[in-house]
Design a protein around this nucleic acid. Structure first.
Length: 256
DNA sequence: ATGGCTGAGCTACTCAGA
């Protein structure tokens, strides 16, 4: 089974790229962030033609998340308490090798600039999220958290980490919050299979970042220790970043 | 050099992204 997560930076203008992705990868489940539309503007027809069921938690202009699945999903949950009432988390129950797994799609706040209320919003969001996960752990055989975390976990996940020490994506306080979640019993699953530097999932549209491979690794799959043995591989699908009118993020994909 | 692309919402520009 293949589960992909992709910050799509507007789902309506990206359907051509998504079609290429589906034709090539054929994921069973697709999780999107930054769909940037309200529920009733979501391109349901496009995905239903591709045989996906759509579970959408949209918002006008900004944010918005969705889970698309070839199999029907149960227990769709949009009840996460977002401190600013934004649409950043949707989850559903799935089965992996007969184990009950909670699949969570997140779009974590960016948090910049750090001297504005955006930064405390990110901290508050992370605190609420920690509580949300902690409460669910005992209800499931495993939990999968996929999405755009807006967190650079380690110094080898960015070109010049010293330039990022006061940035909301890399501040020590933020990396500690990330590790706090890991300490609940999760792994940064990509790093189980790939320890190389410069394994980025995001490249800024400006400054020729893609051409010079100056990116960030900020999209992740955190997966419960209890189901790690079920994972065959985790990969970043960089090719999408080279397509026409690309999202600035590439998908991350876990294979069970 | 916090603004050098990009998208939404909208019609001239802001706001947001990371």
């Amino acid at each position: 089974m293949i589960i992909s997560s992709w910050n799509i930076n507007s789902i309506r203008i990206r359907t051509k790229n998504i079609e290429e992705y589906i034709d090539k990868i054929d994921p069973d489940i697709l999780m999107f962030q930054e769909i940037k539309c309200e529920d009733d503007k979501f391109p349901y027809d496009f995905f239903e033609n591709k045989k996906y069921n759509c579970y959408v938690f949209g918002q006008k202009s900004y944010n918005g998340v969705a889970i698309l699945s070839k199999k029907k999903l149960l227990k769709i949950d949009k009840s996460f308490k977002d401190p600013n009432k934004q649409s950043r988390l949707i989850s559903a129950d799935i089965k992996i090798s007969n184990k009950l797994v909670k699949l969570i799609c997140i779009y974590l706040p960016n948090g910049n600039p750090v001297n504005t209320d955006k930064y405390p919003y990110k901290i508050k969001w992370l605190n609420n999220f920690f509580d949300f996960i902690k409460k669910e752990i005992n209800n499931y055989d495993g939990i999968i958290i996929g999405g755009d975390f807006n967190i650079i976990p380690n110094s080898n996940d960015v070109e010049n980490p010293e330039d990022w020490e006061n940035d909301a994506l890399y501040r020590l306080e933020i990396r500690k919050e990330f590790r706090k979640i890991l300490n609940l019993g999760f792994k940064d699953s990509f790093r189980i299979f790939n320890n190389e530097d410069k394994q980025y999932t995001f490249w800024d549209y400006t400054q020729g970042s893609w051409q010079r491979n100056k990116g960030l690794r900020i999209d992740h799959f955190l997966i419960s220790d209890k189901i790690l043995t079920k994972i065959k591989n985790v990969e970043i699908d960089k090719f999408t970043r080279g397509l026409d009118r690309p999202s600035d993020h590439a998908p991350i994909r876990v294979i069970f």
